[in-house]
């Protein structure tokens, strides 16, 4: 008679004596989990539709631009311009991703399970912020990389051309990073205020789109200074203002085509930094309140 194999023994409860990882590892795990959540990885098929649709659109646009450039040799969009042109898509992406990251946890009441663990509450908020910013940067930077590869392989100038192309790409990636940080900070703060995903999404779109009319009104007032500072009023135009000051030709080739910010470029940069800092501080405050409940 053959020996029975695969006998299941109930060995009872086992105490765990192995290693317990520190704060940095836990932060990293939460960050990666957030990044996966944004793109719907490890989630239902339904949660994957929208993120990958947006990824598809930006990739197709980038591929199209690359194809046009390699065929007729004309640069339709610089790397930075690409990030600019895709910003409206980023708004909708944030409106879906930010509530997915934070509103869902608020609604399901899972936060006490996080805050009863060693992880400090600030780490929770910061890890989520970092995941959203990275996701947005990947969304804008990934297609730029596609454009770069296309250009680098089709350049007639050999290595020199590739090097020049790389010098064009890097400011584009930095500009994408600026978009990512500003949009992530604002979007996550708005989303952290409510547990209802639809409200959060609406709120985010409202903050980004409803502020544009203010810019419109301010820019036709009969004062040059007000006109030149008008773009501060909306996050998208704020980022464009910083871009036009810092990148100039790369974003707006040809003199006089950029937005009218006059000599206020540094003001735009400072306001952007303050805005991100304020949103992050408010986000941390918000989670301090949530954790005490």
């Amino acid at each position: 008679m053959p020996e029975p194999t695969g006998v299941i023994h109930d060995i009872g409860y086992q105490r765990y004596t192995g290693p317990r990882l520190g704060r940095r590892h836990v932060f990293g795990a939460l960050y990666l989990h957030g990044l996966r959540t944004v793109f719907g990885l490890g989630r239902s098929a339904k949660a994957k539709i929208f993120p990958w649709l947006v990824v598809g659109i930006v990739t197709v646009v980038a591929a199209g631009l690359t194809a046009v450039r390699s065929q007729i040799g004309e640069v339709v969009m610089t790397y930075a311009q690409f990030a600019d042109a895709m910003s409206w898509l980023v708004i909708f992406f944030v409106a879906v991703a930010a509530p997915e990251l934070v509103s869902r946890d608020l609604r399901s009441g899972v936060l006490p399970l996080y805050f009863s663990r060693p992880l400090p509450r600030d780490d929770y908020a910061l890890a989520k912020l970092l995941s959203l910013a990275s996701a947005l940067w990947l969304l804008l930077g990934g297609p730029q990389l596609v454009m770069f590869l296309g250009a680098a392989f089709t350049t007639p100038d050999g290595l020199r051309g590739t090097w020049n192309e790389l010098l064009d790409l890097l400011p584009g990636l930095l500009y994408a990073g600026l978009w990512a940080v500003v949009f992530a900070a604002i979007g996550l703060l708005v989303a952290s205020l409510t547990g209802k995903r639809a409200f959060a999404a609406g709120g985010i779109v409202a903050v980004f789109l409803m502020t544009t009319p203010i810019v419109g009104v301010l820019s036709i007032l009969p004062s040059r200074a007000v006109n030149e500072l008008a773009l501060l009023a909306s996050p998208s135009t704020l980022v464009q203002g910083v871009g036009s000051w810092a990148l100039q030709d790369l974003l707006y080739p040809g003199a006089g085509t950029g937005p009218p910010i006059g000599d206020f470029g540094p003001v735009y940069a400072v306001v952007t930094a303050l805005l991100v800092a304020a949103c992050t501080a408010l986000l941390l405050l918000r989670y301090r309140k949530v954790a005490a409940r």
């Binding site: 317990r20 239902s44 869902r104 399901s108 009441g109 006490p112 009863s116 663990r117």
Partner: peptide, 16 residues
């Protein structure tokens, strides 16, 4: 918290 486990009173599980 590293040595304590906590089971809250209220609903605390993400449904999906």
């Amino acid at each position: 918290r590293a040595r304590v486990g906590y089971m809250p009173e209220h609903e605390a599980l993400p449904p999906d």
